[in-house]
């Protein structure tokens, strides 16, 4: 099984160790992995163009499964796309709100609306959402079929094997 792990520079610093750990676990479980890292800047004039650029890349035939580990890699297209939603701001619009939420001009509102719409489309087309908290899962369950798991069991979930600790193995919430 080939699994493509996708991440962006937006949250790469915070998740580099997590990514390496996941990669190692997947390989130990027999999966082949590769990692793509795309640049991203939250500077407002460029956000929408960057989201479009992610949609324009074609990764559909490169792997059996693509896992988005940080926004906005969930914008990438893949027939077996798995999204992961961390505890702190599962979507890009959360980052937008943290940075620009107080600026209520019409252009900024228009950009925000487009981000929300783009995320809705990209999320709905995913095969699965993996949430690391029930709070996030409740928020996502109307958009994508989701499971809640402990982050340490992500690799087991992705390769469809039984986790070492069944209590944390993954519970379907939607």
């Amino acid at each position: 099984m080939q699994i493509l792990l996708a991440t962006s520079t937006e949250q790469f610093h915070n998740r580099e160790i997590e990514l390496e750990s996941l990669r190692d676990q997947l390989q130990a479980l027999g999966a082949s992995t590769d990692v793509l890292v795309l640049p991203f800047s939250m500077e407002d004039p460029h956000v929408l163009a960057q989201l479009a650029s992610y949609r324009m890349l074609d990764v559909r035939h490169f792997a059996d499964c693509m896992v988005s580990l940080s926004p906005p890699t969930h914008m990438l297209r893949h027939p077996n796309k798995v999204l992961t939603f961390s505890e702190d701001g599962p979507q890009m619009v959360d980052s937008w709100d943290r940075k620009y939420g107080a600026i209520e001009t019409k252009p900024m509102q228009a950009i925000r609306n487009l981000i929300v719409h783009a995320e809705q489309v990209a999320t709905e087309e995913a095969a699965l959402g993996i949430c690391f908290s029930h709070h996030v899962a409740r928020r996502m369950q109307s958009v994508v079929n989701s499971v809640v798991i402990d982050a340490t069991n992500l690799a087991f979930q992705l390769v469809g094997k039984k986790a070492k600790n069944p209590r944390l193995a993954g519970k379907v919430v939607a």
Binding site: P39, F40, Q50, S53
Partner: peptide, 17 residues
């Protein structure tokens, strides 16, 4: 023809900081 999209995508990306 896919190369058009790839070139354009790269030109639309931004590297921050």
């Amino acid at each position: 023809e896919q190369i058009y999209s790839e070139m354009l995508a790269c030109r639309m990306m931004q590297i921050e900081d």
